[in-house]
Design a protein around this nucleic acid. Structure first.
Lengths: 171, 171
DNA sequence: TATTGTTATACTCTATAACTATA
DNA sequence: TATAGTTATAGAGTATAACAATA
């Protein structure tokens, strides 16, 4: 059990990690944004699956997944074949072209990381991966609000301000 | 120096961590999106500063920072006072209302983390924070492309597809 | 001429809600 | 009636480029 200061720091680092993520995104082909890359990666790792399952793995809404899938299917990187067991669904499968794209993505992002993390040991990278994985697991890859969590309410803006308002802040 | 498999795994975890970030975002007041929260947090930690400095700390473009700042200033959570040393700039400073909002944000996100990470030791959280911080440092909080990195080119879509195209994938 | 900010525009990712087809 | 998926719409975050004011 950690203290509030540590939790604040973790929140901050989590927010700041977006910069690293964007940096990796910049080496991806303009053709293949992050959402598409994630779809290809998960199909490769977990095998053929339906949209619903993919949405779970991505931890985003199915509507979002549907759009990503349409994007990669439109480029011929996956095929959607009818699910014999349920006519509402289709089975997603990587094509050879999809595998080729995935290889290229891996090459580029790994090259970037190899450059930036050249002074990290194998063990340190492993430790970070392990802790990040556990963090995700601790959040249960949860989509819905778990128990009776009250929806967050807006905070009041400074109305009759307690400080003298300077003219430059009149919006 | 780690291997390609580890780099791929790190990339994947980095991408998947977005779900945790969004989960935290959901407990924030509708009033105060992530960008605003980041501005308040950094002003609290590093003290009064100009937009340019804040943009560096956020590791985003100044135009983005400008918008976030306008948002929090519009709610009276910061004030922008003239910089005596440079008439082009203004100094950003948290107001008492801004401090109050920041306290509330800390309370909410820490409560969420305390709930989800109840089985983590203080040391484990500290280790994760340390590694995440180092990861950011390894990326140098870099904004511009460092040396002669060639801009990424788009990958070819599957044209004359190597596999039989099924009708359901005609976009 | 270079720098600090701001604004306009566009793109990606996400969620909610309405809708279709099937179970 | 419930579930799988799609689409429309809206909101947040970001980047690039054009612009204003000042250095």
């Amino acid at each position: 059990m950690a203290g509030q200061a540590q939790y604040e720091e973790l929140t901050r680092q989590l927010s700041a990690l977006g910069a690293v993520k964007r940096e990796i995104g910049r080496v991806l082909p303009t053709n293949c944004p992050g959402g598409s890359a994630a779809v290809l990666t998960l199909l490769d790792r977990h095998g053929d699956m339906r949209i619903g399952r993919l949405a779970e793995l991505l931890a985003v809404d199915m509507s979002v997944t549907s759009r990503h899938v349409a994007h990669v299917a439109g480029r011929g990187w996956i095929v959607r074949s009818p699910d014999p067991a349920d006519k509402r669904s289709r089975i997603l499968r990587l094509t050879p072209a999809g595998h080729a794209v995935l290889d290229e993505l891996s090459r580029r992002s790994s090259a970037l990381l190899a450059d930036r993390l050249s002074d990290w040991t194998d063990d340190e990278v492993g430790q970070l991966v392990r802790l990040m994985t556990r963090l995700r697991e601790s959040f249960g890859d949860c989509r819905a609000t778990p128990h009776g969590t009250p929806p967050p309410r807006p905070l009041p803006a400074a109305q009759a301000a307690p400080t003298t308002r300077t003219p430059e802040d009149a919006e």
